[in-house]
Amino acid sequence: MSQEVTDADFKQQVLEADGPVLVDFWAPWCGPCRMVSPIVDEIAQEHAGKLKVVKLNTDDNMQTAAQYGITSIPALYVFDKGEVAKTIIGARPKPALEKELADYIG
């Protein structure tokens, strides 16, 4: 399982991180999120060291979710140097995700 981040440590864990960070926005009631999370974990593991992967529970961390205008989950955002570099909204199969993330895991 990837690390959980919160409103409190988002800045430190994500915005101020050295390399790119993929944030998996999810909530416990979201069925498709349950399907995507293990795939995201797999990708993180297979490319360890290239892309840091964290999860943010939007129910408990509404401030960060609102700040980035999340209106649909699962949503995968890649942050690079504090900025949103890529957004992937909605559940995708693993090959499709790998393709979308090629710049970061290739």
Binding site: C30, I70, T71, S72, I89
Partner: peptide, 17 residues
């Protein structure tokens, strides 16, 4: 705009509105 305001699932996304 799908996932950026346009949605097909009220129970999934309603909470954000």
């Amino acid at each position: 705009l799908s996932g950026r305001g346009v949605s097909w699932c009220a129970t999934c996304d309603g909470f954000f509105f």
